[in-house]
Design a protein around this nucleic acid. Sequence first.
DNA 1: TCAATAGTTTAGAATTATTCTAAAGAGACT
DNA 2: AGTCTCTTTAGAATAATTCTAAACTATTGA
Lengths: 141, 141
Amino acid sequence: MRKKLRDNSNETATMRLRQAGLRPTRQRNELAKLLFRDGHRHLTAEMLHAEAVAEGVKVSLATVYNTLHQFTQAGLLLQVVVDPTRSYFDTNTADHQHFYCEDENLLTDIPGPEIAVAGLPTPPPGTVIKRVDVVVHVRRS
Amino acid sequence: MRKKLRDNSNETATMRLRQAGLRPTRQRNELAKLLFRDGHRHLTAEMLHAEAVAEGVKVSLATVYNTLHQFTQAGLLLQVVVDPTRSYFDTNTADHQHFYCEDENLLTDIPGPEIAVAGLPTPPPGTVIKRVDVVVHVRRS
DNA sequence: TCAATAGTTTAGAATTATTCTAAAGAGACT
DNA sequence: AGTCTCTTTAGAATAATTCTAAACTATTGA
Ligand SMILES: [Mn+2]
Ligand SMILES: [Mn+2]
Ligand SMILES: [Zn+2]
Ligand SMILES: [Zn+2]
């Protein structure tokens, strides 16, 4: 009882899933709890699966992939493309930009006021702008 | 003889390779000619290989991959990451930015004055900025 | 309470892009 | 030409991701 009163992460996760129109299954709940427990995170499917396994959550890699894509479609995550060999998922769905360090495969948010993209260019005929991605590649020095 | 005087693409390609410190082999020459014959291009390895085959150039896909990476290391190409499933190589090695249309897998340069990235952010401790990538994702409208 | 239904999970196979291996081929230099 | 080194290539291997189809489970409404 004590525990229940202090830890509302289950209800929070369930609510988040219902609002997103996703059936709150055990696996989705557990993954949502891992994803959204602390500040913003930038994870690959493999990373999240390893974390789940390490914490004793029984879920398959296929389900992690499914879930990450469903969460992305539902607007709970953003997929970020920075590395040609892996896909990152970002729990920060606000409009923001990234540092990417290839040396350590580390993706982080650019803090504070974002880089001002001065004056969007006219998109090619027959298209409209969907999103502007800014990635600042850094190197260990 | 007439032909030789008008078409210096072979010599141009050879020179480009020598300057890059790459032995001018038949395959590298042919690929260089395809890559740099008209304006700037944005190609995947598969695309370049298909083009080579279509034009009767005998070269394996492995060599196309090798060559694209060697050209990139030599500074003749830029590798651009926009799509989690494929790698693009860009013959425009100037500092510039891209439109990417996922609907048609089309990567193009943003023409004219580039988007001004106002005030670079301070990189994470222990790192220095290597490059700033700006990709404007567009959708067919 | 409990089927019936529809949505979900999963193991394992399949797919796709890319890289590796190691043997044969070709450019460079004498 | 002969030697050396670098390059090409077929085919195998790898890695990330997706697919398949059968077993499972949340939801709903009697
Ligand atoms: Mn890839
Ligand atoms: Mn990939
Ligand atoms: Zn982020
Ligand atoms: Zn370009």
